[in-house]
């Protein structure tokens, strides 16, 4: 089975966001594979280990995106495609068009992605890619079983879980509870250096949604902080809940 995985390089989730000249500054920021995409990489490798095949990692991003691809290769993916995109503010529409263009050529049996990116939190790109490619999709998948040219997906929906079947090829987006991504081994890291990464230019496409202003949220002021015996502090907290927040107590 040929599996394509779309990964996005994002800021470390512990990174503090700083604005510089009205833009988000990447200075000194540790970059990682979007944690949800990392789960997609892991899932692809597990499928390959079980039934054979090839895992291709596709990443649209700037020069440093190579690091994200190398990490996926070190985990066990076979080769990478780096779509050169220098504008970090490219919107979801344009990003989907760029990825779809490359995925079309790859002709994978299965396309795996994270269901959301930890940076922009849009949850748009994989579903848009599926629409462009005319493929079925299943979002927010927590369990994936493949067989007979189809995928049986257990997925999170509002108010519960759903079991859904789609025919392959399909686009499937992963929730973090799907698996626990491995750390690359030393051997994997060494091997990754020799694995091929194809560099391609992004297809020319204009963004339709534009970021016109960035700001940092107003810092929340620390309020009261009390120490002491639990009998006293607990009582004060209860009083605050009742008198200030005006909570309703269910008996």
């Amino acid at each position: 089975m040929k599996i394509a995985v779309c990964v996005k390089q994002t800021f470390d989730t512990e990174a503090k966001i700083v604005l510089k000249d009205g833009k988000i500054s990447g200075d000194g920021i540790n970059l990682i594979i979007n944690p949800y995409d990392e789960v997609a990489v892991e899932e692809a490798i597990r499928i390959k280990e079980k039934q054979g095949g090839e895992v291709v990692v596709v990443c649209a991003g700037g020069d440093r995106a190579t690091e994200a691809i190398r990490q996926a290769l070190a985990m066990g993916a076979d080769r990478g495609v780096h779509i050169k995109v220098n504008d970090p503010d490219v919107d979801e529409y344009a990003r989907a068009v760029m990825l779809a263009e490359v995925l079309k050529e790859q002709g994978a049996d299965l396309i795996l992605c994270g269901h959301v990116a930890a940076d922009d939190g849009s949850s748009q790109v994989p579903t848009r890619v599926a629409e462009i490619l005319g493929l079925p999709h299943a979002n927010v998948v927590t369990k994936l079983e493949l067989g007979d040219g189809k995928a049986v997906c257990t997925r999170e929906v509002d108010g519960g879980m759903e079991v859904m079947e789609v025919a392959l090829p399909a686009v499937i987006t992963c929730q973090v509870s799907l698996n626990e991504p491995r750390y690359p081994s030393m051997k994997g890291i060494m091997q990754a250096k020799k694995k091929p990464i194809a560099n391609v230019d992004a297809v020319a496409v204009e963004s339709k949604a534009k970021i016109i202003e960035l700001a940092l949220p107003a810092a929340k002021q620390a309020g009261k902080k009390i120490e002491g015996e639990p009998e006293d502090t607990g009582k004060q907290l209860a009083e605050w809940l009742l008198n200030e927040v005006k909570v309703e107590v269910k008996q």
């Binding site: 800021f11 989730t13 990174a15 503090k16 966001i17 604005l19 988000i24 930890a118 940076d119 922009d120 939190g121 339709k208 949604a209 534009k210 970021i211 016109i212 202003e213 960035l214 700001a215 940092l216 949220p217």
Partner: peptide
């Protein structure tokens, strides 16, 4: 609210 609320972006469509 991007970066889970660490920054706010105004997006024009």
């Amino acid at each position: 609210a991007i970066y889970a609320g660490k920054a706010l972006a105004k997006v024009q469509v």
